[in-house]
Amino acid sequence: MTSRTPRPGLPNLPKFQLGDSELARRIELASEPEDEPADRPALRRAIGEFGHLFELVRRPFRKVAVEPCDKPEIVLILPGFGASPTKMRYMARQIERAGHKTKNWGLGRNWGPNDNTLDELTARLDEVCDRYDQKVVLLGWSLGGLYARELAKKRPGCVKKVITMGTPFSGSPRANNVWRAYQFITGHRVDKPPIKADVAEKPPVETVALWSPNDGAIAPRSAAGYPGERDRAIALRCTHMGFSCEAEPIQAVLSELSCD
């Protein structure tokens, strides 16, 4: 009998090896009550995120205007929670069409931080910075944007700019529709990660926050932030999943990359 191969396109779920007590603990984390309910995207916005299932159908009809850049940047791409670099490959290709070079974050699928995450990312950033002998633009989607902000604080001399897309760096860490799933999968509270960080503190480099009022996962205010938490906030019209592939966020990112 031949073994069945996995269906393409399905996510690689984390390999849990949970005993009964650990499973019960994670279920408790996912179902814990909120002391003060946070403002989060409405149900209709969350449902709108399922339109991303038709992304491969829409992509051939999408027009992304890309102009060549005379001064290419090195862009380190950090995927969102549950996503792998493959999910951001389409955006990476459009960035490279403009003449820039994109680099993989090197940690596979993003299942949340652990004790070593920032150290591993710092080593990756140092490697890319040394290899190309120039500062790097950090492009982080959702949770990946939190890593980008913390990396820039640790290595400001290696970072030219931070661009976040739908990243919840401001306000309540529960101002989103995914915090319960996050707590179950990671095994820690969303407000007590294994990384010590003040996520609202602005990195000491230019920091741009792309956000959308149509985001069905992250509260728009949480992703836009306030003056002092970022340098600029740019409003777009896309879903949370659309940050990685829709024309408007891709063109917004291209506009942020230096070409002069």
Score class of each variant (00 low, 15 high):
159 V>E: 01
108 G>I: 07
119 D>M: 03
195 I>V: 15
235 A>G: 05
73 E>A: 15
28 E>L: 11
130 D>Q: 14
83 A>F: 13
105 W>L: 03
49 E>Q: 15
49 E>D: 08
122 T>A: 14
24 A>R: 13
53 L>H: 09
182 Y>F: 15
141 W>L: 12
185 I>L: 15
204 P>L: 10
220 P>T: 01
52 H>F: 15
234 I>K: 04
57 V>R: 07
22 E>D: 14
217 A>K: 00
127 E>D: 14
153 K>I: 08
126 D>K: 13
101 K>F: 10
109 R>E: 10
230 R>S: 13
74 I>P: 05
151 L>W: 12
152 A>Y: 11
233 A>D: 03
164 T>E: 08
70 D>W: 01
123 A>I: 07
24 A>P: 01
121 L>Y: 15
67 E>H: 14
67 E>S: 15
30 A>R: 06
135 K>H: 04
28 E>C: 04
25 R>L: 05
92 A>S: 14
22 E>N: 05
123 A>E: 14
122 T>D: 11
179 W>K: 05
117 T>G: 08
106 G>I: 08
200 A>T: 14
160 K>G: 10
254 L>W: 07
174 R>C: 06
146 L>P: 10
145 G>F: 03
212 S>V: 11
183 Q>H: 04
1 M>F: 12
68 P>F: 04
171 G>P: 07
162 V>G: 02
34 E>D: 12
246 E>A: 14
62 R>A: 09
128 V>Q: 09
160 K>C: 01
235 A>L: 03
5 T>R: 10
73 E>C: 13
156 P>T: 11
93 R>W: 12
250 I>R: 07
5 T>W: 05
114 N>H: 12
188 H>I: 06
253 V>S: 05
168 P>V: 01
223 A>R: 00
147 Y>T: 02
158 C>Y: 01
154 K>D: 09
187 G>D: 05
72 P>H: 06
164 T>Q: 06
142 S>W: 00
5 T>L: 13
2 T>L: 13
138 L>N: 08
249 P>M: 05
63 K>G: 01
181 A>D: 05
127 E>S: 10
148 A>R: 08
228 G>F: 05
147 Y>L: 12
237 R>L: 09
220 P>N: 06
172 S>V: 06
135 K>D: 06
260 D>Q: 09
200 A>R: 09
214 N>C: 07
98 A>E: 02
53 L>P: 02
30 A>M: 12
55 E>S: 12
40 R>G: 00
7 R>T: 12
225 G>M: 00
174 R>S: 03
66 V>M: 05
97 R>T: 02
68 P>V: 04
246 E>S: 13
62 R>V: 11
168 P>C: 01
103 K>W: 08
37 P>H: 07
